Amino acid sequence: MANVTIIGAGNMGSAFAGVALAGGNAVQVLARDADKAAVDSRVSAGVVGDPITGDVVILALPYPALADVLGAYAGQLDGRIVVDLTNPVDFATFDDLVVPADSSAAAGIAAQVPGAQVLKALNTNFAATLATGLIGDATTTVLIAGDDAGAKATFAAVVDDGGLTAVDAGSLKRARELEALGFLQLTLAADEKISWAAGFALVK
């Protein structure tokens, strides 16, 4: 079992806390407000800036909040698995991503925390599909991109043990495709072409 820290207690952070707890993992949740971090009686709740206890750290944050959080934990993420679930959408226009076309939010994080094993995952999932474990009749699929095979295996075990299906999506270079897919899914939901409980599933 893993020791998981989730930074952010919004819908995604709360939903993934449930997944991690279902798999028997120890879970710490950190938020700006300690009361909001108490998403479940089984989690260790605290505020951003408190020491991180997890070997797996989930950045369950809006993309614009990343810089402050990474700054607050400068040097403390070395040796840890860092999972980026952000979609770097330009919310002013809702018509583009704010990272270069040949890069990704995850690549930017990897450059800022070179001592960590950075993964891109969960950004193609809505919180409801994490909480229910279903997309339609299919088990929720979590696509994982990263360069460290051991880090991917550790995080995949958290996902699988929590009742979801982890799929290795390739190297961290694939993060840009995952972010494009996440962006497409967001625009479809915002335009009410799919519900916020829907999403893309892999059927083998």
Rank of each mutant, 00 (worst) to 15 (best):
Ala2Gly: 04
Ala2Ile: 04
Asn3Ile: 01
Thr5Gly: 02
Ile6Asp: 04
Ile6Ser: 05
Asn11Tyr: 04
Met12Arg: 12
Ser14Tyr: 03
Phe16Leu: 06
Ala17Gly: 09
Gly18Ile: 04
Val19Gln: 08
Leu21Ala: 05
Gly23Asn: 13
Asn25His: 15
Ala26Arg: 15
Val27Ala: 03
Val29Glu: 05
Leu30Glu: 08
Ala31Cys: 05
Ala31Asn: 15
Ala34Ile: 10
Asp35Met: 00
Lys36Tyr: 00
Ala37Glu: 13
Ala38Glu: 09
Asp40Ala: 06
Ser41Thr: 04
Arg42Lys: 15
Gly46Met: 13
Asp50His: 10
Pro51Val: 01
Pro51Cys: 02
Pro51Lys: 14
Thr53Ile: 04
Asp55Asn: 15
Val56Glu: 11
Val56Met: 05
Ile58Val: 07
Ile58Lys: 11
Ala60Tyr: 04
Leu61Val: 04
Pro62Ser: 12
Tyr63Gln: 12
Val69Leu: 09
Val69Ile: 11
Ala72Ile: 05
Tyr73Lys: 14
Ala74Tyr: 00
Gly75Cys: 04
Asp78Trp: 07
Gly79Gln: 10
Ile81Gly: 03
Val83Met: 10
Asp84Trp: 05
Leu85Cys: 08
Asn87His: 11
Val89Ser: 02
Asp90Met: 09
Phe94Thr: 05
Val98Cys: 07
Val99Glu: 10
Val99Ser: 06
Val99Arg: 14
Val99Ile: 06
Pro100Leu: 08
Pro100Ile: 02
Ala101Arg: 15
Ala101Ile: 09
Asp102Met: 03
Ser104Phe: 03
Ala110Met: 10
Ala110Leu: 08
Ala110Cys: 08
Ala111Ser: 14
Gln112Met: 13
Gly115Asp: 06
Gly115Trp: 08
Val118Asn: 10
Lys120Ala: 02
Ala121Pro: 06
Ala121Gln: 09
Leu122Lys: 13
Leu122Gln: 10
Leu122Arg: 15
Asn123Glu: 07
Asn125Thr: 06
Phe126Tyr: 07
Phe126Trp: 11
Phe126Cys: 03
Ala127Gly: 07
Thr129Arg: 09
Thr132Asp: 07
Gly133Asp: 08
Gly136Leu: 02
Gly136Trp: 08
Thr140Leu: 08
Thr141Glu: 06
Leu143Tyr: 11
Ile144Asp: 05
Asp147Val: 01
Ala149Leu: 12
Ala149Asp: 15
Gly150Thr: 11
Ala151Cys: 10
Ala151Asp: 06
Phe155Pro: 07
Asp160Tyr: 08
Asp161Glu: 14
Val167Pro: 00
Leu172Lys: 13
Arg174Ile: 00
Glu177Met: 07
Glu177Ser: 11
Leu178Ile: 03
Leu184Thr: 02
Leu186Phe: 10
Leu186Val: 05
Leu186Cys: 02
Leu186Met: 11
Leu188Phe: 04
Lys193Asp: 01
Lys193Phe: 00
Lys193Met: 06
Ser195Lys: 15
Ala197Trp: 00
Ala197Ser: 14
Gly199Thr: 09
Phe200Tyr: 12
Ala201Trp: 10
Leu202Thr: 05
Leu202Ser: 02
Lys204Met: 00
